[in-house]
Amino acid sequence: MQPFSYSRARTAAEAVEAIAAGGQGTRFLAGGTTLYDLMKLNVEAPRRVVDVSGLDELADFDTSGESELVFGALAKMSDVASDERLIRDYPALSESLWKAASQQLRNMASLGGNLLQRTRCAYFRFGEPFQCNKRKPGSGCAAIGGIDRGHALLGGSEHCIATYPGDWAVALAAFDAVVDVLGPKGRRSIPLQELHREPGDSPDIETTLAPDELILRIRVPATDAGRASTYHKIRDRESYAFALASAAVAVAFEDGAVSEARIAIGGLATRPWRAFEAERSLIGKPLTEEAAKAAGARALEGAKPGHHNAFRIELGARTVADALMIAKARA
């Protein structure tokens, strides 16, 4: 870790001003559970840190709206996870937070910071001697040809196959969430599905957010399909582990046939991955186990295995299938 200067913003506008003034290598600090972790590993080495954790204007969330749910970027994971309306009407959103990290981390971590957490790829996290295009552009990718059991099967490139590790963004992707941001040039809104980039030939650029843009809020359009939803997460232990495969799904039915289906998968791709084809395959038909399995297989279509991760294609398909049946039982 190297020394850095620290300032505390009182308003969102002040935060954006501070980051613009700070120039390259300035970072927002929210809960610190990703940023400090990576600073201690020398993967992140900001010169300046602008603490936004005190921005009360962004700490609230409202799940009672008729047309949309609104989450301040600084709302805590643990508070949102245990919101009763969310648990009742959008279990997938609540579960994606409950099943992430540990209670201690959720108490610290913010929803906005959560979206921007970085990959768990060991070659990325542990620095020298590993080549890593994300950490050190142009150095290569040690994961390709290495221990890739946890690496992405979808959305990778020859430069990087790092999995996007978060859960919350996957659930948000299923619900067409939008992210409101504030930058020196003003406000704009980014559909969540456009927030994260695939690595392509620049794995170091992970999002479409400019470095000086602050996430203000996350908005989720209200939908009745929220009730019959789940976030199903399969991992190497029953709690406190990242997903080997996960699925956020929501379904609605008319006359016994699927009228709406939402499927996003996590732990399998380089970004939160919406499976539109799989969704479409379900519409207008009863949701049987066979249909769920077929949709699961669809969701993983195009998956490219490496050395140790091929099993997660089948696992991912089954995770989607099981998630669909769990969601159906809630309809």
Binding site: A122, F126, P129, F130, A142, I147, D236, R237, E238, S239
Partner: peptide
């Protein structure tokens, strides 16, 4: 659960922390 991962190209151990070296948790 537990295995210390070894990448034969580099030596040492790859999952050298207790976030990635998974020991059982209460829920297990």
């Amino acid at each position: 659960r537990e295995a210390s991962e070894v990448d034969p190209r580099f030596g040492g151990f790859l999952n050298a922390d207790i976030a990635e070296y998974v020991v059982p948790v209460n829920a297990d």
